[in-house]
Design a protein around this nucleic acid. Structure first.
Length: 695
DNA sequence: GAGCACTGC
């Protein structure tokens, strides 16, 4: 790696300046290229030229306002308060503010409640999954995740109780944010009184604005006069973050792991005090980097003995994650080596130096093979800027990019591919159908997914009996599946189990399949880990094994100590309990009853098949290495080593999901009798060429 | 005998 760092610039020309400190706000509309005339026009209309006044003026006069600025500037949290004071929450109307993450909803809501001097859960409340802290009739400002707002649309498609809807962090372009933004545009045509505020990073402003530009011909006649201005306004706000000095390598690095480690040591030797945050891609790289830095510590004490090196990724047990937030001991410099989790989800306050590898793991979906895979890929400029910004929260910081300035300027894509275009769309499409959107292919998306992906999702939903020949939700199955907060195949399995008399067990399995992994990832104690797992393992497969884990957890009195002894993730188990309770409530609301099959594992497996028949595989003949072929498309797949059926290799199995690494691995596998497949899904299997190996 | 970026309902 080059030891020579080249300082560079990053920030696009600042378009705007702040307000109360005597500056001006920059306001423009999407069609205008002349920003100064826009500014002049606004200046003439606004006697007092302040942030608050500008917001209220724009919301009053434009159907859509787009707030652009540094993310995390805290500027947007003042907006709901301004709106409430200006009377937007009177007469039972509510101001809604969405965030993509639960934690952000909670923290912003409590900050705003405090600023307004009210009790959280009354005038200012929030709603996230499992937790509704609002009082209908009293709550005027409501914070919620965008996913919850989409769920609310199922009961109230026009979101009639909201006067203003503010969507924060829209530039992240998460699946649910994109669905919401599309739906809101549709609502806007039928609700001229509704105001939208969308908060986004600079890079996305123009496309957001042109998306929300309402053409008159698209409005109902009586709505034309009611919408004050169909042209979205853009308001730029300068963030309050400190400047971050960017440094690039002079030559491309060949080994970014090695380069990251050397950069940390070089920062430690040459820079002033302050914590270091390093962005790598995944658990493997992170553990390796931690080890390299620790070895360095052992070899040359003088140089790095005062480094405190900590890994950070989502799979880490909570107690280890909490170490990150404790201040480093006196005289020590904290170095956190992290995945993308530190880019948006967690904020470390003491960070002054950021090291950016330029890579992250990203999900991609191939609609032809119907497989999602996770690959290491270059990040976007927007992401790089976000990473750099993590260094400027405490005081001016520095960001060391392990790539050249030329690469940044010329080759790095300016924004990432929206999640919508990298995902399997079954859940998305079922939600749209439940909201009465029939023409999915013609829907006005912010970024349209491929036709192949949409057609594939429609096919899968049709084969599950969730959609009919006209691509409409079936009744009751389709509508019930849309209600349940699960993957459609899991919903199908659960609903079938109610008819088959094993819902008590299957509701537990559904909850267990909804969490990342219930096992704690532990390296170095593999033998003990395998032994612990064997205590729960059964010949039928992983799903039934999960039932044993759940039983054991309940029997222990939901003990964290018990989890620790058995290599089970306590946080994941608590989530399983929450999800299971919620599912039971949903089932009761649908008029379905819980019934136990009292150990009839055959019935249990048949219920699983009724959701997952499309994921059936048979062991290839003469296969010494455990190769399976999928029945649907003869793809080569293997049982994942984490499965209790690894190396057991039953003749015919059904899997929950595939993970693509060097091979395609099936995760969560259950052994089945091939005859059950035809019984469960004759439409799916009987039309196919008979397979002599099976039947 | 090998592997799981990150959210969300």
């Amino acid at each position: 790696m080059s030891k020579y760092w080249k300082p560079g610039s990053d920030r696009p020309t600042p378009v705007l300046v702040d307000d109360e400190e005597g500056g001006v706000l920059f306001v423009s509309t999407s069609s205008s290229s002349s920003s100064s005339s826009q500014l002049e026009r606004l200046r003439q209309r606004l006697p007092v030229y302040k942030y608050r006044d500008a917001i209220l003026y724009l919301v009053e006069n434009h159907a859509t306002t787009i707030i652009v600025g540094e993310t995390g500037s805290g500027k947007t949290t003042q907006i709901p308060q301004y709106l409430k004071e200006a009377g937007w929450a009177e007469g039972g109307r509510v101001i809604a503010c969405t965030q993509p993450r639960r934690l952000a909803v909670q923290s912003v809501a409590s900050r705003v409640a405090e600023e307004m001097g009210v009790t959280l859960g009354e005038e200012v409340g929030y709603a996230i999954r499992f937790e509704d802290q609002t009082k209908p009739g009293l709550t005027m400002v409501k914070f919620l995740t965008d996913g919850v707002l989409i769920r609310e649309m199922m009961d109230d498609p026009l979101l009639t109780k909201y006067s203003v809807i503010m969507v924060d962090e829209a530039h992240e372009r998460s699946l649910s944010t994109d669905i919401l933004l599309g739906l809101l545009k549709k609502i806007q045509r039928r609700r001229p009184d509704l105001r939208l505020i969308i908060s986004s990073a600079t890079i996305e402003a123009k496309s957001m604005a042109s998306f929300y530009h309402i053409r008159k011909k698209n409005l109902r006649n009586d709505a034309i006069d009611a919408v004050p201005n169909q042209e979205p306004a853009i308001l730029s706000v300068e963030g309050k973050g400190y400047t971050v000095e960017i440094h690039y390598v002079e030559e491309p690095v060949s080994d970014y792991l090695q380069a990251a480690v050397e950069t940390v040591l070089s920062i430690h030797d040459n820079e002033g005090p302050g914590d270091v945050l390093v962005f790598l891609t995944g658990q493997d790289d992170i553990e390796a980097a931690v080890k390299m830095l620790t070895d360095e510590y052992n070899h040359s004490r003088g140089r790095s003995s005062d480094l405190l090196v900590l890994p950070l990724y989502s799979g880490l047990p909570r107690s280890d994650q909490d170490l990150i937030f404790a201040p480093a001991p006196r005289g020590k410099r904290k170095v956190v080596i992290s995945t993308n989790i530190a880019e948006t989800s967690l904020t470390l306050e003491g960070v002054v130096y950021v090291v950016d590898s330029s890579f992250s793991k990203q999900k991609f979906y191939n609609p032809i093979s119907d497989i999602e895979s996770l690959v290491t890929a270059p990040i976007s400029k927007a992401s790089a800027r976000q990473r750099a910004g993590r260094a400027g929260r405490l005081r001016p910081g520095k960001c060391f990019r392990l790539y050249t300035e030329e690469y940044y300027l010329k080759d790095m894509p300016s924004e990432g591919i929206p999640e919508m275009q990298r995902s399997n769309l079954v859940s998305c499409i079922i939600q749209m159908k439940a909201l009465g959107i029939d023409n999915i292919l013609g829907f006005d998306w912010l970024s349209s997914p491929s036709a192949e992906a949409m057609v594939r999702a429609l096919e899968v939903l049709y084969s599950l009996g969730i959609l009919d020949e006209d691509a409409k939700l079936t009744s009751p199955l389709g509508f019930q599946v849309a209600e349940l907060p699960l993957e459609p195949m899991v919903s199908n399995m659960l609903l079938s189990s109610c008819e088959m008399g094993c819902s008590e067990e299957v509701v537990t399995i559904a909850a267990m399949l909804s969490v990342q992994s219930i096992w704690v990832s532990m390296r170095g104690v593999q033998k003990e880990f395998d032994e612990a797992k064997l205590r729960f393992a059964v010949a039928e497969g992983d799903h039934v094994t999960y039932l044993n884990v759940y039983k054991g957890f309940l029997k222990s009195g939901k003990s964290s100590q018990w989890c620790y002894r058995n290599f089970i993730n306590y946080q994941a188990m608590k989530k399983v309990i929450d999800i299971r309770e919620q599912l039971v409530r949903f089932l009761k609301r649908l008029g379905l009853t819980l019934k136990s099959c009292e150990g009839d594992l055959k019935m249990l497996r048949k219920a699983i098949i009724s959701g997952f028949f499309a994921h059936a595989c048979q062991l290839a003949e003469y296969s010494p290495n455990g190769m399976y072929k999928t029945l649907r498309s003869s793809q080569e797949v293997y049982i994942h080593p984490s499965s209790v059926l690894f190396r057991v290799n039953p003749k015919c199995v059904v899997y929950h999901s595939l993970v693509l690494t060097d091979k395609q691995y099936m995760r969560n596998v259950i052994a089945v009798d091939p005859a059950w497949l035809i019984e469960a899904a004759p439409h799916f299997y009987q039309l196919r060429k008979p397979n002599p190996a099976l039947f």
